[in-house]
Design a binder for these strands. Structure first.
Lengths: 162, 162
DNA sequence: CGAAGTAAGTTCAAAAAATGAACCGAGTCA
DNA sequence: TGACTCGGTTCATTTTTTGAACTTACTTCG
């Protein structure tokens, strides 16, 4: 399967990975949630090549995950801010962090603590069924084709090179 | 930053991405949750090169996400099954699917429906605070260094080429 | 004034990774 | 015997990533 075909697959995970399923994008988004907005700050924190960062930021902006907004004229410069669509990726990052804290931490425990300002506690994220509120077990989930399974409009392909 | 350094970063997301932060691994894991266990079935469903699949399955087994178990002697052949660690990745996939259904579906709606056998409803996954049960807003989360922040044992590097 | 610095890129050669096709090995099936 | 199966390996080609140098339009320092 070519990477450019991913976006057109009738699988939500494949579609999502066409946006952030590479080696850098989720780290870029992590930094977005930590307040990073500018090109060079991403670059310094992540240590990725400029050309790669340029391309990833462009893709995220094209996909509506980040907003590219000018913050000065003269030499026009832009910063990158999470859109609502981008902010909705927070559960993805929390789910990843939760798994990692549970399974990849060393002897001393997880490297970071997450504190929920609303309740004041250190927490981890819990995934629950939107309908009954119970935790979700993979063996209790059935997957079936939905309304958009064969939607030709969704089967668009990203322009070559994107 | 080199890819091999990711696993040693004091960030749970970076560590997790050292395991599945590439173009194929989450799709392999998706198929695992759909019951796929054998090399050729992964290969046919995903259409990825054999060498890449070989390497990814080996990494997932090395990391304890999949179990490589012989299912026949003669020519010894193995299948790959999710371990408990692997099953714990379900929230990650559900979070991704939930985001995608919300933001990447076409006019006709999401391509797949997820039904929770326990309650009988079509659902989406919800991420909540483990302590107070409220939905999590990124602006209400504070991140601070934790016990394992400087843990040298966790800062191991993956052997070169692995 | 000129020199150095800054931020956000672009360009380009070299290295690494992915791709796709062919091949392999131990056994089964007809 | 010859074709087929499954789970790989090998290898030449293509694509992607990397890292370093360069660019552009300013601003600040001396």
């Amino acid at each position: 399967m070519k990477w450019s075909e991913l976006a057109g697959q009738p699988c939500p995970i494949a579609r999502a990975l066409s946006v952030f399923g590479d080696r850098w994008t989720l780290l870029v988004l992590r930094d977005c949630f930590l307040g990073v907005r500018r090109f060079d700050e991403f670059r310094e924190r992540l240590g990725l090549p400029r050309a790669v960062l340029t391309e990833r930021l462009r893709l995220l902006a094209d996909e509506g995950v980040l907003d590219r907004v000018a913050y000065q004229q003269g030499p026009e410069r832009h910063e990158y801010r999470l859109t609502a669509k981008g902010r909705d990726l927070y559960p993805v990052l929390l789910a990843i962090a939760g798994w990692s804290d549970r399974h990849m931490a060393g002897e001393a425990g997880p490297p970071l603590r997450h504190r929920h300002a609303r309740c004041g506690q250190d927490f981890h994220a819990e995934m629950r069924c939107s309908e009954c509120g119970e935790p979700l077990d993979p063996r209790e989930v059935e997957v079936r084709p939905g309304a958009g399974f064969a939607d030709p409009r969704a089967r668009r392909q990203r322009p070559a090179g994107g």
